[in-house]
Amino acid sequence: MLHINNLHARINGNEILSGVNLKVQPGEIHAIMGPNGSGKSTLAQVLAGREAYEVTEGEVLYEGKNLLELDPEERAREGVFLAFQYPVEIPGVSNTYFLKAALNSIRKHNGLEELDAVEFLKLIKQRMKIVDMDESLLSRPVNEGFSGGEKKRNEIFHMAVLEPKLAILDETDSGLDIDALRIVADGVNKLRRKDNAVIVVTHYQRLLNYIVPDFVHVLMEGRIVKSGTKELALELEEKGYDWIKVASDSTLATA
């Protein structure tokens, strides 16, 4: 589904990604962990098409297509979804109106009929339950005045409505208390299907107790330095990232 080869990217002349390689198959959950500043969020933003980042080398194939050639909206319409680390406030635009515009743009692209107001309302009422969304958040401007937890929950609600094939969750756990974390994680699990995949970007192992990954990758200094199964996350939790750094340095030294 997703095939990242030797991806290099920079912003304002600083290289952040220095040769990322990653393969994601349908139905899989991948966790990308790493210390602050390792490039996790950059990878998420580059995959979603943030123009501030310049890709200098490498390629990203998504369902056989060159993802890097697509505009952000084209990626979304093809099924890529980014749950933002810092969801953006859009004053004056209601959550419902925003989602309807988004969903219908995606449906139109995929040759489906646009949903009318009634059909749309029915759909969102149903999807709200997945993340236990408060109905009052529907009519309010997107993320404006939402608490940190409400914003994160709203991101997963958007995901539930838009039904992406590849969802990238960027630090969705940050700012969530344990109850909210469980609800958000449950939501993600409910949306899991054989033909979709999730990349969970996180600093802590905590979220992975609820969203259990098939693979865990450690990103450091812009490269994936170690990959493993969910046990790797537990090991990181126990030993910290310095352990990996030392281990990989010594690997390089002996190589």
Partner: peptide, 29 residues
Amino acid sequence: DADQMFYLRSRGIGTTLAADILTFAFASD
């Protein structure tokens, strides 16, 4: 706002519609 534009586009909304939505929201205030 570039962040707002990217947020709308990353959810599938094209640039023209995204700009319209943000502009109208600004004015309708």
